[in-house]
Amino acid sequence: MRKVLLFLPLALFAAVVLAFAFRLYAPGDAIIRSRMVGKPMPDFALKPIVPNHPGLAAADLRRGAPRLVNVFGSWCIPCRVEAPQLEALKARGLPIDAIAIRDTSADVAGFLRDHGDPFQRIGDDPTSRVQIAIGSSGVPETFVVDGKGIIRHQHIGEIRPEDVDGIVAAWEAAR
């Protein structure tokens, strides 16, 4: 009995190593799924931030057709990286609205001039209040909202070229 007991630490260690190895070779995806997926957009009404785009309210997302909502900031580098992909989504017929986080009118205008303007409506969220309410913890993020204002999909981080088809599919599915 004592002999077996002496090897107990080794056995425990072996179990820990197995767990480590498992995790090392099957790394769990680090993305935390939004609890907002499947839930309606909370109520909000954001003022416009640039003159040539109207502001964005939750009511605008309940007009019967699915839309994308892009959460971005002119100060955010990955947002520039994803700009061509947003253009591509627009070209494939997806309507896109945006929420500008902690931004200024001049900066957003400059961003749209330099990196393209795929947006219909842009709401001004200077304190991130709406961003937090809709379950977004960073920029950029992109939501697929169906015609009844229910969040169907949340893409966290920049949209890379390989993500475009997936987002189109999520938008198709929301119809």
């Binding site: 002999k3 002496l6 090897f7 630490p9 080794l10 260690f13 072996a14 190593v17 480590f20 190895a21 090392l24 070779y25 790394p27």
Partner: peptide, 26 residues
């Protein structure tokens, strides 16, 4: 992950070795 795998091998060698020696010798 490669670095992780490398250190994991070292863990197995050293800790495993020492614990095995403990079981055998103590």
């Amino acid at each position: 992950p490669q670095r992780g795998a490398f250190i994991l091998v070292l863990l197995v060698l050293y800790i495993g070795g020492a614990l095995a020696l403990f079981g055998l010798r103590v």
